[in-house]
Design a protein around this nucleic acid. Structure first.
Length: 469
RNA sequence: GCGCCUCUAGCUCAACGGCAGAGCAACGGACUCUUAAUCCGCAGGUUCUGGGUUCGAAUCCCAGGGGGCGCACCA
């Protein structure tokens, strides 16, 4: 006797395990092996006193074969809709045409669907609909589910990799009294009992370095961060960053670590370091090309560019490139703008761009030999900034000066400039050892590994304008 | 925020100034080996919304809304 909508179902077998065990049967075989499977009916082909259904679970799918002779509930079975959840048990067989199937002896309806799952062949492709009703997209378009599985594997790999290097995974506050650690506009929220405004974090950086001060020599956090900025195929208002900090190390160590992490990840998930992204090839085998920011600009412009070039000349170069210059910008900012305007879009990578001007790197340690620069690098892969890292600024006096320069920018209207964080300065006064810090956009990394063009594809529920229902 | 494109049945799409259609899904039926099964039948619409032009608008124009892409900002 069939019970509808039971509270549980004893699923003993996944579809993939059945496929693995019985992949080489002749047509019209009987195995004598009984299995019980559960999942969603995604195709139903009733044929008189026979019915064929495709049962899909999270591991794959298998055909269900039912006949009137075997099952007193045959007629109900043959009326199942696409999308219904069922549990079924019976013998593993192959049909006359050789299709591996479960010959249904017993089955139970676990949940009924009242809505359609889109076009049988094309699924759903309306981008808005896909993300508003992700639960439909994930069934109708198996590729969508596969991409999220790749995301899960990527993050699991990163954890395994860092754990093996004795990194400690930590969690730091999401609600910040001062939004620091990056240049970005924060979301503002409010704590009623404390009667204060709080900011959703734009980066975990300053808290992680406090932990290094506190004695954690290798820490990381896989951190959801929030930036109140425009959206695009490469930007979601909330996204996930990996940030890691390693004491006694500098940015050269960071380059080595990230080269090994990303190339190992590609080997593990794709099977090779020779990958392609959106039709263009990428060689992720280390070592990667390294160029300083000024080298890149100099090459593009065909003249030597450095911080000792006359300010007025940098200004005229910016003007030539239609860069809107603000009065308070110094030469370092002009150099960064030139790089971003004329070099960055030409880079495909992987390439390590090193030595950013100090003026635009308020948390990075001054370069040991290049005056006015910092020991900072960004990693460009597939034309996108994937990693930002540096030898951390440890000197509380220097850090206070940098914060104050940022605070001045904020006063002149730069909404993304940093504020002075007195507690962070106090932490530095207790002593931060030489430390390498590195941040990586996880969503963009997954885009690269899964070879997809839009960040929304790698986020289960990307931010959308609320629907008027 | 600005520019360009787009919105038609539950889904995927046609019709592009002259009766709003197809395939799939749904619904009813036939069928004992299907593979996007096939066949018969039936039903399904504020053509995103509002205004305008026109004898006549899904189609042209204006405004608004949703979405996409590009620019800007960033990871």
């Amino acid at each position: 006797m069939q019970v509808k909508f039971p509270y549980s179902f004893d699923r003993k077998d996944t579809t993939i395990s059945i496929l693995d065990r019985f992949s080489t049967l002749e047509p019209a075989s009987h195995t004598g092996t009984n299995v019980s499977v559960a999942g969603r009916v995604m195709l139903m082909r009733p044929q008189g006193k026979l019915a064929f259904a495709r049962l899909v679970d999270s591991t794959g799918s298998i055909q269900l074969f039912a006949t009137q002779d075997d099952s007193e509930l045959f007629s109900e079975f043959s009326k199942l809709s696409i999308g219904d959840w069922i549990g079924a048990s019976g013998e593993v067989i192959t049909t006359r045409k050789g299709e591996l199937s479960v010959r249904v002896q017993e089955w139970v309806l676990l949940a009924k669907t009242k809505r359609g799952f889109g076009d049988k062949w094309k699924g759903i492709s309306d981008v808005d609909l896909k993300y508003r009703q992700r639960y439909v997209d994930l069934w109708a378009n198996p590729e969508s589910r596969s991409i999220l599985q790749t995301r899960s594997k990527t993050i699991a790999f990163i954890r395994r990799y860092l754990d093996e290097l004795d990194f400690v995974e930590v969690e730091t506050p999401v609600l910040h009294p001062i939004a620091g650690g990056a240049s970005a506009k924060p979301f503002v929220t409010r704590h009623n009992a404390l009667d204060i405004e709080l900011y959703l974090r734009i980066a975990p950086e300053l808290y992680l370095k406090r932990l290094v001060v506190g004695g954690f020599e290798k820490v990381y956090e896989i951190a959801r961060v929030f930036r109140n900025e425009g959206m695009s195929p490469r930007h979601n208002p909330e996204f996930t960053m990996l940030e890691l900090y390693q004491a006694y190390s500098d940015y050269e160590d960071g380059i080595e670590l990230i080269e090994d992490l990303i190339s190992s990840l590609a080997r593990e998930l794709i099977g090779t370091t020779q990958i392609s992204y959106q039709g263009r090839s990428l060689d992720l085998e280390p070592p990667w090309e390294r160029k300083s920011m000024c080298e890149l600009i100099s090459k593009s412009l065909g003249e030597p560019i450095d911080l000792d070039v006359e300010y007025s000349h940098l200004l005229s170069l910016c003007k030539d490139k239609a860069i809107e210059v603000k009065d308070e910008w110094g030469p370092g900012k002009l150099i960064l703008e030139l790089y971003e305007k004329i070099c960055e879009s030409e880079l495909w990578g992987p390439i390590i761009v090193t030595d950013f001007p100090q003026e635009v790197s308020p948390l990075a340690r001054s370069h040991r030999s290049k005056v006015g620069f910092t020991e900072r690098f960004e990693l460009i892969i597939a034309g996108r900034e994937l990693v930002n890292a540096f030898s951390e600024l440890c000197d509380p006096v220097d850090q206070r000066d940098r914060f104050q320069a940022q605070a001045q920018l904020k006063e002149t209207g730069d909404e993304e400039a940093m504020a002075v964080d007195e507690d962070y300065l106090r932490a530095l006064e207790y002593g931060l050892p030489p430390t390498m810090g590195l941040g990586m956009g996880i969503d963009r990394l997954v885009m690269l590994i899964a070879d997809v063009a839009s960040i929304r594809q790698v986020i289960a529920f990307p931010t959308l304008r609320p629907e008027a229902i």
